[in-house]
Simulated assay, not measured.
Amino acid sequence: MRREYIIGLLIGAVIFSILLAGCEENQESSNEIPSNQVKIEVKTGGDDGGVVALTDLLPETVFGVLNGGSDQPFMVGLFTSGGGDNLTGRAIYRFDISGYENKGFIFHVKCVDKSGNPGDLEVYLINDSGSLPSTSSEMSDVSEVWNLVERGEKITTVAPSSGQWITVDIPSSAIESKVTESGYITIMLKLKNEDLSSNMDYYSLSTYEYLQGSAKPYLSIPGAF
């Protein structure tokens, strides 16, 4: 009975919390690329979102939900559910780079909002997580996806600003070892320090469907032509 109660609270609260995060839109910053450069966007709602785990059970137990396809920003960091559960979120972005597997890329995602003092974000290239469910999955062991970062390659550390785009250079040498046979690469973002003594320190990052697709995460190829 207790487990079913927590499942209902967490799934509802994650959605509610993300909705709140998307309520305040900061001034749009320009992130245009030259028209002669290749631009690869997230293709579907199932290709971005992330994994959320119950903070108080980490690191021994990774129990939580997977979520993709939301029209609201995804919260990366530490926050609290409506039922009072402490949560930790990590964002996931998947891109089909078929035909460009030997290229380096620039990853672009908008930091819609910043709450508290979450510190730096770490950006990893990881083994493919697979498509994410279009609605929050039931509470379960999500360690398989959560721990992909342990076998991933850390690309860089960034300090996002609210309302600004994050840009990250990903070298071709990193792409080679992580691209799938179907041409996908997967990026994960997490707080550098997930052990903050807080539950309101997070970044809200744009998704495929956020603001009707006006701030889609994407890859560009520098000097493509």
Rank of each mutant, 00 (worst) to 15 (best):
D128Y: 10
G130T: 08
G130V: 08
L132P: 03
P133A: 04
S137Y: 11
S137D: 02
E138M: 10
S140I: 08
D141L: 06
V142P: 07
S143D: 07
E144Y: 08
V145P: 08
V145T: 09
E150C: 07
R151H: 15
G152W: 00
G152K: 01
E153I: 12
E153K: 11
T156C: 09
V158Y: 01
V158M: 00
A159C: 14
P160I: 04
S161I: 12
Q164S: 15
Q164G: 14
W165K: 06
W165C: 05
W165M: 10
T167L: 03
T167M: 02
T167K: 06
V168G: 01
V168D: 02
D169T: 11
I170C: 00
P171H: 07
P171G: 02
S172K: 13
S173N: 09
S173E: 12
I175T: 12
I175Y: 01
I175N: 05
E176S: 15
K178D: 04
V179W: 10
V179Q: 01
S182Y: 12
G183T: 09
G183I: 09
Y184R: 07
I185G: 02
T186F: 02
T186Y: 02
I187C: 03
M188W: 01
M188A: 13
M188N: 06
L189F: 06
L189H: 06
L191Y: 11
K192A: 15
K192H: 14
N193I: 04
E194M: 09
E194W: 06
E194R: 11
D195I: 14
D195V: 12
S198Q: 08
D201P: 13
Y203I: 07
Y203Q: 07
Y203D: 07
S204D: 07
S206Q: 04
T207E: 00
T207S: 02
T207I: 02
Y208S: 05
Y210F: 13
Y210T: 01
L211Q: 14
L211R: 12
